[in-house]
């Protein structure tokens, strides 16, 4: 099986290059992460992040044959050879497949990703009907892998201004929560031409989310809510 992998170590390389690798005796039902680990056994200098191996920790988002995805749940059989693996697009590369995610997390932090409640806390749990709770499905499961945001053209063009699909999905996660009481603050934080409204509904985010989430829809919901709020 043939691989072409983006390599760059600023300590030794003047610039990035693609390196070819071959692996023999690979079972195509294996995941891409397993193959990268095999390659690393031959060449210790190849660097990538990974941890859980089952698509829940969000460590190993990479660009695979031109699409963002998680190495640990991408079966080799699904990929055309040579399998081209690159770091997430639009992010500063630290080394090989490892990118600097700081800006991604800054946007996440900026949307105040925590429940805000002003009422005094009851002795018991706050009640929430199963239907109210259902509204959080498809939102809270985000693993902050960054596949969506780093595949969004609006983010490439406005990396500082536009919050990006992952952060906006989380903003909606709290707006949609019947327990949250910061609706007005959350909406006003997203006003202006960039933070929310740079989304051009290009749907790249939905296409690549490895958890099957739909940030574009969440963004639409925030827009609707904002309109209602203004009226």
């Amino acid at each position: 099986m043939r691989f072409s992998i983006y390599r760059y170590n600023p300590e030794v390389n003047g610039g990035p290059y693609m390196q070819e690798y071959q692996l023999k005796g690979i079972d195509p039902s294996m995941m891409l992460r397993d193959a990268l680990l095999r390659i690393k056994e031959q060449d210790e200098t190849l660097v990538f992040r990974h941890s859980c191996g089952e698509g829940v920790c969000g460590s190993d988002a990479i660009n695979i044959n031109g699409r963002n995805g998680l190495g640990c749940i991408t079966p080799l059989a699904s990929l055309k050879q040579p399998i081209e693996v690159r770091p997430l697009p639009g992010m500063p590369v630290i080394r090989d497949l490892v990118v600097d995610m700081d800006r991604f997390f800054e946007h996440y932090r900026s949307i105040k990703p925590y429940l805000v409640a002003h009422d005094p806390e009851p002795e018991v749990e706050r009640l929430q009907t199963p239907e109210q709770r259902d509204r959080l499905d498809g939102l809270y499961e985000c693993i902050l892998c960054g596949c969506c945001t780093t595949f969004c053209p609006s983010f490439w063009w406005n990396p500082d201004g536009f919050r990006g699909p992952a952060a906006l999905l989380q903003s909606w996660r709290f707006l949609a929560d019947s327990r949250d009481q910061a609706t007005a603050e959350r909406l006003s934080e997203l006003e202006g031409p960039y933070r929310l409204f740079r989304c051009r509904s290009i749907m790249n985010c939905v296409e690549v989310c490895p958890k099957g989430l739909n940030p574009a829809k969440a963004i639409g919901r925030i827009r609707q809510m904002m309109l209602k709020h203004i009226l």
């Binding site: 941890s51 859980c52 089952e54 829940v56 920790c57 460590s59 995610m101 997390f105 693993i143 902050l144």
Partner: peptide
């Protein structure tokens, strides 16, 4: 690892 990558997540 970044905090939300810790294994409690699993």
């Amino acid at each position: 690892v970044f905090p939300t990558r810790s294994h409690t997540v699993a």
